[in-house]
Design a protein around this nucleic acid. Structure first.
Lengths: 127, 127
DNA sequence: CCTAATGCTTCCAGTAACTGGAGGGTCAAG
DNA sequence: CTTGACCCTCCAGTTACTGGAAGCATTAGG
């Protein structure tokens, strides 16, 4: 199948599939006589895999590692778990950061009258 | 004062202060005879303001708007509140997204044995 | 006064992961 | 044979810096 078929089948944008081919993340099965990228089921499965991993916020490099493990039937689940745990830790760290920001900013927003007058605790806090 | 003094006084990197000058966010007070950027207290205050706003995740463009309001003593606090509320909404949206990711990924990580065997619910989920 | 070490300048490149667009070849239908 | 939908490559732009190179300016030491 051509690239747009593969894109549709994997739920990615055509541009993205081409980009993944360029960076060697998911290479097409081959090229047609006229140079068109051709994709078959295994590639589409990989594209889908990457789409799902990306949705979890894994970086392209992490996806590369995960794809390798996906393909490797001799893998250790420990290796997968290691990558996923790192991502989970990142998520937790981000959550803590956002919670702090949320609480402080919510407090400031709440205490700002939001009328035509210039005095504003948000500006005071930043200034 | 020179740029590195202003950077130190505002808690920013010298490169960042120069960048802010380049994009017209916080312009230096002037230039010395030899072309050095010179900064005075008002600029340092603005740099500090931007640093604090950036720490809350406001974009450079938002900072531009906030700086304008900071400088405008005829401002309406409603305008400040509007920008801050948008940012707060973004934070909340991101929090919801991260919560979903966290819960799903935590579940997967927990259910993965993480040993030498290849079977792995994480890979199964993505594949 | 000379020199070496900072410090300042500009400009270019790279980061992450695409996205949009220009310019041009290919293919299937009518 | 032409039209329109595809496909190709390459370049630029996105965000907010950061690192580095080449080259003046300033300053402290000897």
């Amino acid at each position: 199948m051509n690239i747009s078929q593969a894109a549709k089948a994997s739920g990615l944008a055509t541009k993205t599939v081409r980009y993944y081919a360029d960076i060697g993340l998911v290479k097409p099965a081959g090229r047609s006589a006229s140079g068109y990228r051709t994709y078959t089921d295994p590639q589409v499965r990989k594209l889908n895999f990457v789409r799902r991993a990306r949705a979890f916020g894994f970086s392209i490099e992490d996806c590369r590692g995960l794809l390798g493990l996906y393909e490797d039937h001799e893998r250790s689940s420990a290796d997968v778990k290691h990558i996923a745990s790192k991502r989970l830790d990142d998520i937790k760290a981000k959550q803590r950061e956002l919670q702090t920001l949320h609480d402080e900013l919510a407090h400031l927003v709440k205490s700002c009258r939001g009328d035509h007058r210039p005095d504003c605790p948000i500006i005071d806090y930043f200034g």
